[in-house]
Amino acid sequence: GALGAVVRLELDTVAAEPYGQTVYEGIGWDAALDGFDELQASGDSVSLFTTWRSADEIDQVWVKSRRAAPDLRALGGRPADGARHPIPGVDPRPATEQGHVPGAWFDRLPHFRLAFTPSAGDELQSEYLLPRSELREAVAGLRGLASRIAPVLLVSEVRTVAADRLWLSSAYDTDVVAFHFTWRRDEAAVGELLPHIEAALPPSARPHWGKVFALPGREVRARYPRWSEFAELRARRDPQGRFANAWTGRLGLT
C-alpha cells in the first residue's frame, strides 16, 4: 500500500463453531427495506443478491448463522427448493453447501468452495459503501436505473459492514451498507454506466479501493474526513515516493 509493505499481521481469534446457511427467495425490496434491521439480525452474515432484472424483487437472500435457520415468511421469504449459485441459472456446485447443513466456518461463510473459481471468473467488479441510514435513498436510486444496470450485470450483492477506525476504510466511523456489482467483462459499457450509478447514490458513497469506479480524485478525497491526515502520514513514511504510482497520483495522494 501507500505506506509500504505489510510484513506482519496480528489477528484476534474466536472459538470455532459450526455454521449453516440457507438461501431464501420471494423477498421484495419494499419488504426488505421495511424489515431491514430484522433481516440483518436473522444471521451472522446476510447477503441480498439481485440481478436488477426486476426493480421490485430480490433474487436471493443468503443467511449464514450459528443458530437455527430463521423464519423469514413475514418478509415473504421461502427457503430455496435446491442449491443456488448467486448468479441465477449458473451451476450451483461451486457454491458452499446450503440447506442449513452445519459445517466449518471456512466452508459456509464464503459463498464459494475453495476448489472452484469464485463468481463468474471473467468479470469486472465495482462496490460502493455508504452509511446504513442512507439505505433507502440508495436503493431508490438504483431501482430507477434497473433497466440500464441489468444488461451489463451478472449479479449485485448488498451486505452490511460494521464501523471501524481506519482512516481510509470505506466503513470509517460508521456502520455501512455495501452495494457490490459483478459486471460482464465489457469495459466500455461498464465505464459508460458507472457515472450514472455514482450520481444516483448518495454523495457519501465511498468506492471500494480494489474495484472499478469513475469518481474523480477530488470527490473521493472529500468523502474521507481523515484524508489530509493520511496524506501527511504517507509523506512522512515515504518521503521519496517509492510506493507512489499512477493510481495514488490519480487520487491526489502523491
Rank of each mutant, 00 (worst) to 15 (best):
V6Y: 02
T117L: 10
G77L: 03
T248S: 15
L168C: 08
H196T: 11
F112A: 03
W62P: 01
A120C: 07
E97P: 12
E10H: 13
W167V: 05
G43H: 02
R242V: 14
D175W: 13
R8T: 15
V101W: 02
G20N: 09
A74G: 08
L39P: 01
R73I: 13
L201V: 01
A55K: 13
G82T: 12
P118R: 09
G99T: 08
G77V: 04
E97M: 08
V90N: 01
F106K: 10
V177Y: 02
L193C: 13
W62M: 09
A15S: 14
V61D: 06
S170V: 13
V177M: 12
V161E: 12
V23Y: 08
L75V: 03
L48G: 02
A222V: 07
D107H: 09
G191Q: 09
S170E: 13
A214T: 15
P195C: 12
R136M: 03
A246G: 14
L75I: 03
F112K: 03
A199L: 13
A231N: 06
V14Q: 15
A32W: 01
G43I: 05
T174S: 14
A80V: 05
R184K: 15
A83H: 12
L168G: 04
A16L: 12
V152E: 08
L72M: 11
L3M: 14
V61P: 03
R184Q: 14
P18N: 00
G77K: 03
F230P: 00
D37M: 00
G1D: 13
A80G: 06
S65V: 11
L253F: 10
H196C: 07
P79M: 08
Y224V: 06
G82F: 02
L114V: 11
A235C: 04
D12E: 15
A16H: 06
V63F: 00
T117P: 05
P18T: 01
G82C: 05
E123S: 15
G99K: 09
V90P: 00
R234C: 01
E232I: 04
T182K: 10
G4R: 07
E219L: 15
Q125P: 01
Q98P: 04
L9Y: 14
L251V: 09
A41T: 04
I58R: 03
W227G: 01
E97N: 06
Y128R: 06
L39S: 04
V155Y: 05
G43P: 03
I149Y: 01
A171W: 01
A55L: 07
R159T: 10
F49D: 06
W183H: 05
G210C: 11
F36D: 02
G82Q: 04
G217P: 08
E219Y: 04
A138V: 00
S126W: 02
G217L: 07
L114Y: 14
S119I: 05
R221S: 08
P102K: 08
W183V: 03
H85Y: 13
H180C: 10
V158W: 01
L114S: 15
V101G: 04
A32C: 13
Q98F: 04
S169M: 08
L39V: 10
R206W: 05
Q60F: 15
R53D: 14
F181N: 01
A32M: 09
G103R: 10
